[in-house]
Write a protein that binds this DNA or RNA. Sequence first.
DNA 1: CGGTAAATTGACTGCTCTCAATTTACGTGG
DNA 2: CCACGTAAATTGAGAGCAGTCAATTTACCG
Lengths: 245, 245
Amino acid sequence: MSRETQHSYCTDAEWLGRADCRHCNIRNMMLFSGLPDTAFDRTLRPIDNFVYAPGACLYDEGQAGEAVFSIRRGLVKLLHLGADGSQRILRLLGSGSAVGLELLDGGSNYRHSAVAVSRLDVCRIPVSTIASLEKEFPELSRQERHRLQEHLDRADEWILTMGTGPARQRVAHLLLFLSRYSADPNGDVELLAGEDMAAIVGTSVETVSRIIADLKRRRLLNRVAAHLYRCDTAALEAITRDAAE
Amino acid sequence: MSRETQHSYCTDAEWLGRADCRHCNIRNMMLFSGLPDTAFDRTLRPIDNFVYAPGACLYDEGQAGEAVFSIRRGLVKLLHLGADGSQRILRLLGSGSAVGLELLDGGSNYRHSAVAVSRLDVCRIPVSTIASLEKEFPELSRQERHRLQEHLDRADEWILTMGTGPARQRVAHLLLFLSRYSADPNGDVELLAGEDMAAIVGTSVETVSRIIADLKRRRLLNRVAAHLYRCDTAALEAITRDAAE
DNA sequence: CGGTAAATTGACTGCTCTCAATTTACGTGG
DNA sequence: CCACGTAAATTGAGAGCAGTCAATTTACCG
């Protein structure tokens, strides 16, 4: 673990070295999609590559910061901590998404806390680097707008699916969401911690646990490996439509 | 009523004539804030000024469109219609906000339905006009990003306040929201229709009615005129914190 | 003043929360 | 590899909150 103390608040983070955007093999899905190879020749400040352990915090709500993170691999939760310490999760973001985009709007503080859900591989991009590239490449502005729109679409979906209806429907929506964005080719899902699922669908941990346990008994969730479940998406979608049809 | 049939789907809309952005006295709060007076000399297509009656529809979800609307005065609800015809309201937007921004991201269809809640005064801006101004004035890209970020902040607030906790807290949050964005100098609020409030906080109409009636009895909502109520914001905020402290 | 739609209220059912007990999972150290 | 301790997940019981259905009152438009 070489230089993780560059950000003292980020425990369990490991610096992997400078990112080589020019030869990045997944650039077409990242924030810098559309930029020419030569764009990165003279960036003012370095773009670093980091790995975060599950549970590690990228940044806290209200904290001053100067970097946007582009997710290469893994899952990030954006959350708000209530006065009583309880968390409410606002978004789950995976490969290709950018977090911390609110810094591009002029303010200097993050508006959520960002925490790694699974093992996380990210690029850390200084805001000043984005600002200077922006002047030269208008395509980058379009990318920023697109990523923001992506966040907005996710937030709207969140309101409609995780925030509406009885708890069963909301949990079914969550499982379908996890399956849809699963890195697994079969769409198998790694269940989140009960506390996380509760903070997403807005119910108590016990209610989520009861529902998940019931879905397992009814074989809508089938264990295919340790911590890995295959879900009966058709049946889950039926639950989703239960009252809304 | 001269040319409202320009958009056949927009009933109860009245064309007020061409907008004169150059001399717009509220341009500093609109999408075109920051653009020089001369920017509008040679726009390809006209920017029109419209008035919509309460309940009138600006556009429907999924509908193809080619215009963004900038709200001069009044309140717009963005909503999604469920398969059973029930509505879920995703955002309330007022003066200075822009709606239909999703068209700037490349797609040609609106992603929500937009309906006037109160008497509405808007400018209708063709996407092609925005695209051409964008090339000449980079400041416009920043404005677009800022308006998108505004939508995102609203959506996040929506999840945290209108989507979490017992119904009392959610209704209290809604009233405080209405008071905060009220056009009234005293912060007095015009209550929404029960169906709308239910579609915002995600409960039944009866539950909202019971809570509102109770707040009136307990003098946290005091009628100051027909359809106009002054709210005891301190007491409402106390309700808001009831369990979250 | 009448008619229709919306709001209010009541009664009852069912869902979800809270609190508590128990079981299971997991990391640690022997 | 197993035993242990801690944290998480599961399950149960009871109370309270919110949903539904239905009746009544109120508001509003012509």
